[in-house]
Design a protein around this nucleic acid. Sequence first.
DNA 1: CGGGCACTTGATAGTAATCAAGTCCGGTGG
DNA 2: CCACCGGACTTGATTACTATCAAGTGCCCG
Lengths: 236, 236
Amino acid sequence: MKEKGFRCEKCHHGLCTSRVPIFFSLNADEHRRISDLVVHKHYEKNELIFMEGDSLGSLIIIHYGKVKAYRYTPDGKEQILYIFTDGDFLGEKNILRKQMATYNAEALEDTEVCVIRREPFQRMLLEYPEISLKIAEELCERLEKLETMVQSLGTKDVESRVSMLLLEFAKKFGREHPKGKLIELPLSREGIANYIGVTRETVSRKFSLLQKDGIIELIGNRKVILLDETALERSI
Amino acid sequence: MKEKGFRCEKCHHGLCTSRVPIFFSLNADEHRRISDLVVHKHYEKNELIFMEGDSLGSLIIIHYGKVKAYRYTPDGKEQILYIFTDGDFLGEKNILRKQMATYNAEALEDTEVCVIRREPFQRMLLEYPEISLKIAEELCERLEKLETMVQSLGTKDVESRVSMLLLEFAKKFGREHPKGKLIELPLSREGIANYIGVTRETVSRKFSLLQKDGIIELIGNRKVILLDETALERSI
DNA sequence: CGGGCACTTGATAGTAATCAAGTCCGGTGG
DNA sequence: CCACCGGACTTGATTACTATCAAGTGCCCG
């Protein structure tokens, strides 16, 4: 990690904090005040941002990039919990409950983050209660994602789980394409496997099946076209 | 459901809202104000409190009892997401994001709840920002539980999942006992199965194994004694 | 253009789901 | 208090599916 923390010039013009949902309710002046508290950091692809047990002491807000959060299962595999992108924050447990990190966080690509130390942020929470509310809202959203994930992992039928994953990625990372919806996969086969709780071989096989059935088209290793989204929804 | 909503006498003496973590930071006067907004309801064992898609319009706080929250998986099984007990709240999605319920909630035993309508509660959130913070904290805790659950469901080794469940219940519902720790199971075998994503037969078999190994002792259908807690922890 | 790593595909084995009998618990009524 | 009944639980046999092990193949980056 490059340790050259610096005040973000962009932030002073409101171009950084204004992109973060939890600060949406603030006005220009307030954005400027927050920007003064923010330090920027850059992480390279595959760089570890923090690990389980770390006491961060800061809130990390993703400005640009993708970050995976994961834990290890008792049988030694990586279980991915979240894929965070622009506007998402990490380290809230440390801010809200003075608690250590409960998962590892690793950049999936080159990633820019804003960092705010705990103490000034807590002062801001008292001063701008709307932020607490926004955070609660965001946590609600995150809960719902995890609830869906639990539902998916509880499903014995692996086909359904793969389909759910593709639909999730389509919604999050999908672009329009003449043949359907083009998805840039944020994860390798192994990463996908670690997300839905199966092995990489199984992911390969299920993808091949879906391709044979004309539901998806694989382009290289990191791209998929959803040819028949409704068929995928039906298969769940 | 008995529709005899009534003002809770106990609440007026601060015996109800004061037991709820999200109101801990309030003083006696403020408790009295909240109590005025609260209506009590009683649910019998196995009674449905709300279902997926309902627009509650209220926050429900459990005063006494146990409630399971669950969704159906694509293959038609029930997947339990939470077991709520005294002091937990439900329906926060509706309050914070004007969103419909994303799961079904059913009383596991006779249960008393306090209900607060959305509008007065939202006014209170503005007036007492500490409540938002407390809610955010509570949601954090819930997130962590779900994260652990995802980790557990991602574990192929079913023995580990059963062990994790027993340790969770021991922490939550365990009492001291000469032979070890006595757990009153809040769920039937099928319920447990729906919680950890396996079949009821598998739960039976794993319990029998643990009993044969001298790690637990089964008493009837709804009680277990943890004879060797450390062995259970090691087996994860 | 070449090499390494990620991915695919095949064969086999292991484990939990499923199907199918029994057994036991707990509540009810005599 | 006891006998009885039904639902919950246990146990067994078989099946189905994915993990695992192993051997290619092909993508992607230098």
